[in-house]
């Protein structure tokens, strides 16, 4: 953002309002002179995975009352990765645990956005390749899920359907078809997946 003439305040504001790393990243190129409609559509596509996150948390957040609106607004990759595993420590208030995890993840992200903006303007630090941290994090969660589950159809489906759509539809359009295929196959193969016990550990 610094490169485009926007100071660290902008990084922070973007971190609070958008609060999604991938969408924020995409937004930088559109801040100066991007079409509003394109910006909305691109954000919808890039953020579409949150639909998955929210659906799978509806049951878990059911009893949270008004707090749930904050929990859903601030539901990000990291928070989802932590709270969808249902390994809340015994004896800890689940509701408070969820609020704190969510709040901590969001604060650290917003703070990180601001610090990144400040660092970007003063440090000659070559951060090329630092995005790989996201890939690495998802990979560790993927491996842990693989170890924890008896049925590997969903894991294999997620990789193959998305990869296939990336090859067929190109880098800008593949997410939506990939999600449609994933949902379709999950619904069609429901009996088989449930029989294999893949859902019990989710």
């Amino acid at each position: 953002m610094q490169k485009h003439g926007f100071g660290w305040i902008w990084s922070m504001v973007s971190g609070i309002i958008i609060f999604s790393g991938t969408v924020q990243f995409v937004s930088v190129s559109m801040l100066s002179g991007g079409a509003v409609i394109m910006a909305a559509l691109t954000a919808l596509m890039v953020a579409a995975r949150h639909i998955f996150f929210s659906i799978s948390m509806i049951g878990r957040y059911r009893e949270e009352g008004r707090r749930k609106w904050y929990l859903f607004y601030a539901l990000c990759d990291e928070t989802y990765a932590m709270l969808s595993r249902d390994d809340i420590p015994k004896g800890v208030n689940a509701s408070a645990y969820r609020m704190l995890v969510t709040l901590f993840d969001q604060s650290s992200w917003v703070l990180g956005s601001a610090l990144g903006g400040i660092a970007g303007s003063i440090l000659p630090f070559d951060s090329t390749g630092i995005d790989f941290a996201m890939t690495a994090l998802f990979t560790t969660v993927f491996i842990q899920q693989w170890i924890d589950s008896k049925c590997h159809i969903p894991a294999i489906l997620g990789i193959t359907a998305t990869l296939l759509c990336r090859i067929l539809f190109g880098r800008d359009l593949f997410l939506i078809p990939a999600m449609v295929i994933i949902l379709g196959v999950l619904i069609l193969m429901r009996e088989k997946i449930e029989a294999a016990g893949g859902e019990t550990d989710a």
Partner: peptide, 16 residues
């Protein structure tokens, strides 16, 4: 059901 199984597909999707 989707809420239970989707997390297992989402990580693969995110890696790709």
């Amino acid at each position: 059901y989707l809420g239970r199984v989707v997390p297992f597909t989402a990580m693969g999707l995110l890696i790709v």
